Simulated assay, not measured.
Amino acid sequence: MHFALTEEEIMIRDTARSIAAERLAPLAPVLDRGEGRPQFLANLKYLGEQGFMALKIGADYDGPEAGSVAFALAVEEIGYACAATGTTVSVTNLVGEVIQAVGTAAQKQAHLPHLASGAYLAGSFCLTEPAAGSDPAAMQTRARREGGEYILDGEKIFITSAEYADVFVVWAVTDPQAPKGKGISCFLVEAGTPGLAIGKAERKMGQAGSATNPVSFAGCRIPAANLLGRENDGFRIAVGELAGGRIGIASLSLGIARAAMDLAKAYIRERKQFGQAIGDFQGIQWLIADRETELEAARLLILNAAAKKDRGEPFGKEASMAKLYASETAQRCTDTALQLHGGSGYLQDYNVERLARDARLTRLYEGTSEIQRLIIARDVLRQ
Rank of each mutant, 00 (worst) to 15 (best):
G244S: 14
D233F: 06
I184H: 08
E129K: 07
C186T: 15
M261D: 09
A330L: 13
A306M: 04
G342L: 01
V173S: 02
E231A: 15
M1S: 13
C186P: 04
A25Q: 11
A101M: 10
L227M: 06
T87E: 12
T104M: 02
R382Y: 08
Q372I: 03
V30G: 01
M321G: 00
E231R: 12
S134Y: 05
Q50W: 01
D290C: 07
R221K: 14
G34K: 03
G316D: 10
V98L: 11
I376N: 06
I57L: 07
D280Y: 06
G240Y: 08
A289D: 14
D153K: 05
G86S: 03
V69I: 11
L361E: 04
R373L: 13
N351A: 11
A143G: 11
A66D: 08
M205Q: 13
Q140P: 01
S18M: 06
S210D: 12
G86E: 03
A106S: 15
Q177V: 04
R373T: 12
G133M: 08
D290M: 02
S253K: 03
L24F: 13
E318A: 15
G86D: 04
G195R: 04
Q372Y: 00
F217N: 02
A224R: 06
K180T: 13
T85A: 14
D349W: 00
A297T: 14
D349S: 15
R373A: 10
G147L: 04
A178R: 01
R145S: 12
R221G: 01
V91Q: 03
V95A: 08
A201I: 03
T87H: 06
I222Q: 06
Y120T: 00
L295T: 03
A243M: 13
F168A: 02
G195K: 04
G183L: 04
V380W: 00
T160S: 15
N213S: 11
R332A: 12
R145Y: 06
G316A: 10
R230T: 12
D166Q: 11
F281Y: 15
L24T: 07
H111R: 08
P26E: 00
P113N: 02
A116D: 09
D62M: 05
F158K: 13
A59K: 14
A377I: 08
S369C: 11
A266I: 03
V169R: 05
L41N: 09
L303P: 08
A143D: 10
N43C: 15
K45A: 11
Y80N: 05
L347I: 03
I198T: 07
